[in-house]
């Protein structure tokens, strides 16, 4: 019963993410979904500023170089002018929830019919592991060296829940990567999110809790353990909203 499995051909090269970084898995899931949905030749991916900038020249699909956090705005016009194209905004949590909070929320508010995948690794990876709005209470980062003080900086932000509860969008889910089963669930969320776009139901967003071993100062396996023990209790996994197809 074994089926062949091969990295999608649209991934041209290995991306130089750190050992154990979740980006590599999520990018592969995204490209698998695009391939399986038959959109290899009718797709545009919005690339953010952050670690995913390393995707430069890595994908053999049209890849838009977004400005810091602003892909919510840029994907809006692309999707409106090219409604038949699959438009996917691939963003880190710093990009989508900090600097691009306004653009991310406004696109969801308008129910723009594109798909957002956010990689939540609880810090600004590319710039050296500074505190993000997703950093956990007490988390040591480059800008919270004594641990995040939520009295001064607020509690970690849960954007998927905010969007699901406030805006009339099509699909919101949160997945993770700590077991093969979780990876498969995350893939199913990404695929459903893209399907919601293809069906014209509305805006879709999938957040993925992803390890950042380098900046967390943990081994890859210990990073996955941290996700299970510390992050999942605060960032619950599963579908948060599913309006269903047409």
């Amino acid at each position: 019963m074994a089926k062949g499995k091969k990295v999608p051909e649209k991934i041209l090269r290995q991306v130089p993410f750190c050992p154990g970084c979740g980006h590599g898995i999520i990018v592969r899931l995204m490209m698998e979904c695009i391939e399986e949905l038959g959109y290899n030749d009718n797709v545009l991916i919005g690339k953010p500023v952050g670690c995913a900038s390393l995707l430069d020249n890595a994908l053999a699909v049209d890849t838009f170089t977004g400005a810091h956090g602003r892909n919510g705005a840029s994907m809006t016009t692309i999707k409106r002018l090219k409604p038949d194209m699959l438009v996917v905004s691939y963003q880190g949590d710093g990009d989508a929830y900090n600097i691009g909070f306004s653009e991310t929320m406004n696109a969801a508010y308008r129910n723009e019919k594109f798909t957002v995948i956010t990689i939540n690794n609880g810090n600004f990876g590319m710039t050296g592991g500074q505190m993000a709005w997703t950093s956990m209470p007490g988390q040591v980062t480059a800008t919270s060296v004594n641990g995040r003080n939520v009295e001064l900086s607020g509690m970690p932000i849960r954007v998927p829940e905010m969007i699901a509860s406030s805006f009339d969008t099509a699909y919101v889910a949160r997945g993770s990567l700590f077991t093969p089963a979780e990876i498969k669930k995350t893939k199913s969320y990404i695929k459903k999110a893209m399907q919601a776009q293809i069906d014209g139901v509305g805006h879709s967003l999938v957040e993925v809790l992803s390890p950042c071993p380098t900046n967390w100062g943990l081994t890859p396996l210990a990073s996955m353990e941290r996700i299970v023990n510390e992050l999942v209790p605060y960032f619950p996994l599963g579908e948060i909203k599913n309006k269903g197809g047409k």
Partner: peptide, 15 residues
């Protein structure tokens, strides 16, 4: 079974 392919961030495995 492909579990290695599924969990690998770096495209090391092909089944």
């Amino acid at each position: 079974c492909g579990m290695c392919y599924t969990t690998c961030p770096d495209g090391v495995f092909e089944i």
